[in-house]
Design a protein around this nucleic acid. Structure first.
Lengths: 351, 351
DNA sequence: ATGAAAGCGCTAACAT
DNA sequence: ATGTTAGCGCTTTCAT
């Protein structure tokens, strides 16, 4: 009786939060029964179930997560580790993972990694320190040999989004970047372009390498020898695309088409073209890769490859959850891509 | 002895994770001493401290987070609730909050809210279900009377980013949106424009209302009566800006300048102008608001108001942490804004 | 400086 | 169908 007053009140600063015991006592049942009710387990009479629910509501009872986690040996926490090249990309990644997590009780913690060196050797401790049940990792860090090895030997459940399966077969969700880049370059070649340039993404990034490979293969298939001067290194950022665009477009014998390894860099190239008053697509074609929200926000809207980042993240979360709950690991999952034709690429100029 | 083998090995599936007891036994001390060492508490001989550290390392010991949370009554988890109008905005918000959290042991959980109705009445349960120590909330949901009331009566630590202090004085970090919009409109008026239009953001959003107010005040100050036809409702999305732009620019007597309530909508207006081959800024001036990354990615680059979203989130996290740890609540904190002049606004056309 | 014992609030295993 | 009894792995008194 004397203890009831503070408990019956609202939670928070006033009084203490009600515990399973308070509810049990108030409902006249054992704590196990309360536990059953709040975990939707069978073997409780409907009548009692209802009663317990009501008492719980009245006492404003919410199961203590830490206690539950401790007893269950599971935190229901998933970590998403990413390096931040593109806001639009990151957002899709998050939303995709979250979509799969919805309704499962799992939550998403974000870990943007600014410098890969910082996380090398610290990844697993970070995971432990946060009590994560598993992690989703993105390139390039997920293909970093040190980090990958650390992850593998820790036996922590993890999946990679767009990770390199040739480095290790451990779960990764990809698209066929090489084929996609080939298709994209081929499309541009079909428009009559002969001088194509590419802005390459971060070299340590599997996709960047494969996209370059597909680009070169398309050129060779068309009987064109790739020229080093037309292959500029970028870093998947708008700024790097802008700089690459300026370099490529500044001299007389400039390319008539530029492929960028992602949309952000393509937007940068577009910006450079505008600065130099080069009309796109009349005098210059520019194409991107990913089809993030940005692709439709620039002018002209980007012809690009749609990489289903949202679905890839969703799938990755799916694989991870299975791995956490059943221990079953998956190999590479490959999703399909699409060539999205908008207005940033047109026929090669005749001049 | 018999139990040592699996413990000494690596963590994960093989054997069980080492506990504080394993370390204590192996180091020949009590668990309390181990606890002291791993919490950097005093009263342990340096020699013993070192020994315990070594044993911990050898056994690959990592304190169990759930157990620690349970005993300490703290999860060290912060929730960030946001509605997703703009990827660039959301990313900055996250990075800002995370910057303050770095090194504190607190982690960030993200809760994108698609439909505010879903979260009404469910906010607090979500917080409890996730065991959060506190939350950062953004508009418009943080100014929703139902949600705000729920939050207040739960006594959960929370802060708002850009929340309306006139609805409630509870902690919120803002800029003076009204003054900023006034300054921006005044800048445009100084360029000679007389027919100014505005694309308004989501009405339930405090900033949207204040920006509209500032815009109108600037017009009146210049002796111009605001016209309803030149005030178009948007939703803070690129798409809504595009549609608003098309409507505004389609008829003959179109405005010579358009203010958008955020950069995403300004980018949409820009897109509409390009579609209609209206040169910006020669024939039309367009200005944004926020100065997110997008402002520099479009052409021409946006003249806009820099709202320090990153710093606001950082500050919000700071206030929240103080509230969690000391119980001290803060009132409104106001940061300063800047007018950022780029190239999307120019002198009014003479024709 | 160090340790023993008692929780933290829940779930799991095992009665009944 | 329901309850009892141990933990889960740590931190917190409080002794020593």
């Amino acid at each position: 009786m004397a203890k009831e007053a503070p408990i019956a009140g609202m939670t928070g600063k006033i009084g203490k939060r009600a515990t399973i015991r308070d509810v049990a006592k108030a409902a006249g049942v054992s704590i196990k029964t309360v536990s059953r009710v709040f975990n939707d387990e069978p073997n409780v009479r409907e009548e009692i179930r209802e009663k317990v629910r009501q008492v719980g509501q009245k006492l404003n009872y919410h199961p203590n997560v830490a206690a539950r986690n401790l007893a269950r040996r599971r935190s229901h926490l998933i970590g998403l580790f990413f390096e931040n090249p593109s806001p639009a990309y990151v957002t899709e990644l998050q939303m995709g993972a979250l979509k799969r997590l919805r309704g499962t009780g799992y939550r998403l913690l974000i870990f943007p990694v600014e410098d890969r060196a910082d996380i090398r050797g610290a990844m697993v401790s970070t995971v432990y320190a946060s009590g994560l049940d598993g992690v989703i990792v993105t390139p390039p860090m997920c293909d970093d040999p040190v980090i990958l090895e650390e992850l593998l030997s820790s036996h922590l459940p993890f999946v990679r989004v767009a990770g390199d399966s040739s480095i290790h077969s451990a779960g990764t969700v990809v698209i066929d970047d090489e084929a996609a880049a080939f298709d994209l370059a081929e499309y541009v070649l079909r428009l009559g372009h002969r001088r194509l340039a590419i802005v390459i993404g971060d070299e340590t990034h599997r996709s960047a390498r494969l996209r370059l490979k597909g680009f070169r293969r398309a050129l060779r298939t068309a009987g064109i020898e790739p020229q080093p001067a037309l292959e500029i290194q970028g870093a998947f950022t708008f700024q790097s695309g802008l700089e690459a665009g300026r370099r490529l477009l500044h001299h007389a014998n400039r390319p008539t088409a530029i492929l960028a390894s992602n949309d952000d860099m393509a937007a940068g190239v577009l910006q450079a073209a505008h600065e130099l008053r080069i009309p796109v697509p009349q005098k210059l074609s520019v194409v991107g890769f990913d089809d993030t929200a940005l692709a439709r926000m620039v002018w002209p809207q980007l012809t690009t490859i749609r990489q289903p980042i949202f679905e890839m993240a969703e799938r990755a979360a799916d694989i991870l959850l299975r791995q956490i709950e059943t221990g079953i690991t998956s190999e590479t999952a490959q999703l399909s891509y699409d060539l999205v034709i908008r207005s940033s690429a047109g026929e090669a100029p005749t001049s």
